[in-house]
């Protein structure tokens, strides 16, 4: 049961912490043309296709406790390897592509003429974004958050490498199920499987709903 609660915490934190980066990157990729646009897009999306174990290993090379950055973070009480923080970071990075993808699609779908209209009414660019663009993209961002949450919920490879398999701290549903496969009695695995199916289905239904809301929002401005 603690594994389910832990997975929920990890997934929710990944969805909350990913909001700002996903919003910024999604907007940047949807609206701006700049040198390295394609490279940035590929870089953001690569965790989606990279073997998660490799993603975990790369993260360990960057924020592991033996690295300068990871060591410094551990010193200030924020260890990002073999810790709860590591599980959140793994879920965040692996979920970010879906998050950004969804945010980017939402921003792309908004008619730029609406912003131009706001400009003719005297709104400065900042206000155009916060008052016009962002509210229109909100359902898409929320849909991205739900996807990132769902992806984070199921994260296995990167979590196992970066965060290990620590009971109550990094042993999320995926790791707990894998652990229980090694237990011939298999007790408790049914509950975890049921929780996974319910949470994942719930997240995808929410995603569907949010997507429909996004479409309706763009049809009736």
């Amino acid at each position: 049961m603690s594994a389910v609660w832990l997975s929920l915490q990890v997934g929710l934190l990944a969805a909350v912490l990913g909001l700002m980066p996903a919003m910024a990157l999604g907007y940047l990729l949807a609206r701006k043309r700049f040198l390295g646009h394609g490279l940035l897009s590929a870089l953001v999306l690569v965790p989606m296709v990279l073997p998660p174990v490799v993603t975990g290993l790369l993260l360990l090379e960057v924020v592991g406790r033996n690295t300068a950055l990871g060591g410094a973070l551990a010193d200030i009480g924020l260890p990002l390897s073999f810790s709860f923080g590591g599980a959140v970071l793994a879920a965040l990075i692996v979920g970010l592509p879906l998050y950004v993808w969804s945010a980017r699609a939402a921003f792309t779908a908004i008619d730029p003429r609406l912003e131009q209209l706001a400009a003719t009414l005297g709104a400065p660019p900042k206000q155009q974004f916060w008052r016009v663009t962002l509210p229109l993209a909100l359902p898409g961002l929320a849909a991205g958050a739900v996807l990132a949450f769902a992806r984070g919920l199921g994260e296995f490879g990167a979590t196992a490498v970066l965060a290990g398999n620590i009971q109550g701290e990094t042993r999320t549903i995926s790791l707990a199920v894998y652990q229980l496969l090694e237990d011939p009695s298999g007790q408790g695995v049914g509950l975890l499987v049921a929780a996974s199916v319910i949470l994942s289905m719930g997240a995808l239904l929410a995603f569907e709903g949010l997507n429909r809301w996004q479409q309706r929002r763009l049809e009736q401005p």
């Binding site: 360990l60 592991g64 406790r65 033996n66 990871g70 060591g71 551990a74 260890p79 390897s81 073999f82 810790s83 290990g164 398999n165 620590i166 009971q167 109550g168 701290e169 652990q179």
Partner: peptide, 22 residues
Amino acid sequence: HPTALSTASTPRIVSQLQSGAP
């Protein structure tokens, strides 16, 4: 005192400690 148990094959535990697992 609470405890947190982490299990894996012995060599994997060694490599986790090598990577700085606390």
